[in-house]
Amino acid sequence: MTLSIQEVQHVALLARLNLGEEEKEKYAEQLGSILQYADKLNELDTEGVEPLDHILPVFNVFREDKVIPGPDREEILANAPLVEEGQYKVPKII
């Protein structure tokens, strides 16, 4: 089983990954073989099985509504590739 190049392209767009043509082909094949392996799960009848989305039997973990000031803006922005007027600068949207 391999994925189509279109499928790979669609997924790459969703995941925001620029892929070269060769990479697309490689991922089409590799994803295909992993998904084929994943199809093994279909051997199991999971009708009526509750999906396990949280492993811990824990509920209602809260924090109090209390303000703790964050670090200085300079500290937060120190790792940013590009900053202007105390804000993250990004290229145009479209």
């Binding site: 994925l3 499928e7 790979v8 997924v11 790459a12 767009l13 969703l14 995941a15 925001r16 990954l17 620029n18 892929l19 990479e23 991922y27 590799q30 994803l31 992993i34 998904l35 990004v90 290229p91 145009k92 949207i93 479209i94």
Partner: peptide, 28 residues
């Protein structure tokens, strides 16, 4: 030139093959 390109090329160049592979798999 634009944000979508910036995201996509930054991530494509920044992540290695196995990481990209698992991101693709998970996204799918």
């Amino acid at each position: 030139e634009n944000v979508i390109q910036m995201f996509s090329s930054t991530r494509a160049a920044g992540f290695g093959d196995e990481v990209k592979m698992r991101i693709m798999l998970g996204t799918y």
